[in-house]
Every structure is written in structure tokens, then in C-alpha cells.
Design a protein around this nucleic acid. Structure first.
Lengths: 150, 150
DNA sequence: AATCGGGGTTCCCTTAGGGAACTTCAGGTG
DNA sequence: CACCTGAAGTTCCCTAAGGGAACCCCGATT
């Protein structure tokens, strides 16, 4: 229900959740990413209530994650990822890797990613932007940063 | 509110959202990760309603993401990450990177990660598990996998 | 025996999600 | 020109989930 406002918390996770933390938003972004960019397409594919879809789309546009633009002279609009939104797809790919590993079961992954660079079916692995080595839960220490709470 | 059941969808993103898709869960995992493992600690740190915290913790334990275990002879319990849960921290680190970049503003990141391997303050970058090159939104083609819907 | 503190439950209120019906507007059709 | 159509919302009602405060249970301590 997200009545608590996360945007003021001194935490980038909480702030990100304020943008896409309610369950439908990542699925909307996924659909837009794969080319389902119109209201009716999204509504039909997701089975989401039209009311809620309207709210989500408005919020994602307000946050600068999606851009709403006409695709016809009639009042028709499509939603496309901004740069800010496209970078959220990284998050979706990590979610996919985790879901593929822990939730897909016998049937295997519903979707495969083929990496342009190497042509292989592959997944993502988070690595350090400095040294390129894997960077997971136990590979880091946490330190207060400049934007830390008082 | 998540009245729609995502767990049956043929999508690893949707299935993952069924586990941690409601806004408090990632923050609970973050807190457990950094060492706030007890009910009172979580409630005080997050400001979450006790009722909702109980529900979230039960759900995360049911999903095998957290383990609930006694830490005293008194009825006292702490919550710890399972392996399944620890791997979700990858997701939190990607959220942090995105939030640091797009939402932190002038003040800068509230928290910094120091990578054990290189000792540098750093962030994560998703890379291909095969070739090690960056793997972002526009670097992949999507193909139906073995677990695709009929 | 009384108190304390962690870990919840219970209750009520408000608000967000689900779902179906309705609206609007411009382009196409007879 | 009148009518129809389809995309993109909007409105309304109902139910369920979140917020918050009060309450409860239980073993340990004094």
C-alpha cells in the first residue's frame, strides 16, 4: 500500500523503492522494455486494473523513468524508457537471474537472454566497477557516505 | 497491495516480485544484511507497523529467504539470511547503484561500499557470466526458454 | 511476587487495489 | 453527414491491506 513515504529516507534502496517499489512497476518496465508500449497492450498483457495502470504510468512518467509520447495524430500515446528507466533494466536482469535460479524449478527459465557481445545465452553477475571482480553480499564493507543522515 | 498472484506467471521477474515485491521486504533484507536481525531492531529502524513486520517476516521465512532462530533460552529470535536470501543482496546493491546515481542529488550517496577484493569504494556493474563484458538493457536479445508459457 | 523486555496479536480506521461500466476524442465507413 | 470504432483513460463500488495504538505472553531478573 506504500503509505509510508520512502523518498525521504537516507538510503538509496528506499529511494529506489519509492520509484518502483510497488509490485506492478517492474512488470510495466519489463513490458515497455520488450516492446509493449501502449496502454491497451500493457493492460491486456499484465491483467492489471486499468485504474492502477493509469496511476503507475503517471507515477513512472513523473519520476522520469518513462516518457509518454504521441504516436498518431489521434490522441494515442506510447510509453518509452528514458535513460533513467533503461538503467533500471539492470535491476530487472538481476531479478531474472535470481528468479531463474531459485524459482524456475524443473521447467527452467521462461526467458533466455542472448548477449550481443559474445552471442551466448547468459545471465548477469554483479561485478566491481573498479576491479571487475565479483561483488556480492559478503564482498563489501559498508561505510557512511557524504549523504548519510545526521 | 498485491492481491494479484504473481507466482504463477511464466516470468522470473514476476516470481521474484511475489517473494520480495512489496515495498518493505527489500528494506527488511537490507537491515538483516547489515546486522539488524531482531524484531524490535527492525521495527525501530524502519518505523514499520508491527503487524506488517510480522507478516513480512513470516512471508520471507516461508519463502526460504530468511531463517528464524532462537538466540537465547528465553523466547527470543533473530532473523538471518539464508543462501537464497544472501543472493538477493545482489539486487539491493544494484538498487543502491541506481539510487546513488539518479536520486542521491547534491548530498551524494548515504552509504558507500568498499570492495574487499580491491579495497576501493565502488559500486556494481552487471556483467555477462560468460564473457565478462557489460550486460545492460540494449546488450541482449530475449528468446523463449524451456519454461516459457504454452 | 512483582517487574521487565522481546516478540508478537488484536482492533479499528483509512486508503489502495480489483473490476466493471462509462466517457472522450479523432479517424474511418456508408 | 451521421454513425461506428478503438485507444486511452475515468468513475464507482467493494474488499483487502497498511498504519497505529493498545494489549498479551512468557521466561528471566530483583
Amino acid at each position: 500500500m506504500q503509505r509510508t513515504d520512502f523518498s525521504k529516507m537516507a538510503c538509496s534502496i528506499a529511494r529506489t523503492l519509492d520509484v518502483i517499489g510497488e509490485p506492478w512497476s517492474p512488470l510495466v518496465l519489463r513490458d515497455v522494455w520488450v516492446g509493449l508500449t501502449r496502454f491497451e497492450q500493457l493492460q491486456a498483457d499484465l491483467g492489471i486494473s486499468r485504474k492502477v495502470l493509469t496511476e503507475r504510468l503517471n507515477h513512472l512518467v513523473d519520476q522520469g523513468v518513462l516518457d509518454r509520447r504521441p504516436y498518431d495524430r489521434r490522441p494515442r500515446y506510447e510509453y518509452v524508457l528514458t535513460q533513467k528507466g533503461a538503467e533500471l533494466v539492470d535491476l530487472l536482469m538481476v531479478m531474472t537471474s535470481w528468479g531463474d535460479k531459485w524459482l524456475a524449478g524443473e521447467a527452467g527459465p521462461p526467458v533466455l537472454y542472448r548477449h550481443h557481445a559474445c552471442g551466448e545465452i547468459s545471465g548477469v553477475d554483479p561485478r566491481c566497477t573498479h576491479c571487475g571482480e565479483p561483488m556480492h553480499a559478503n564482498d563489501v564493507d559498508l561505510l557512511p557516505g557524504p549523504g548519510a543522515a545526521v
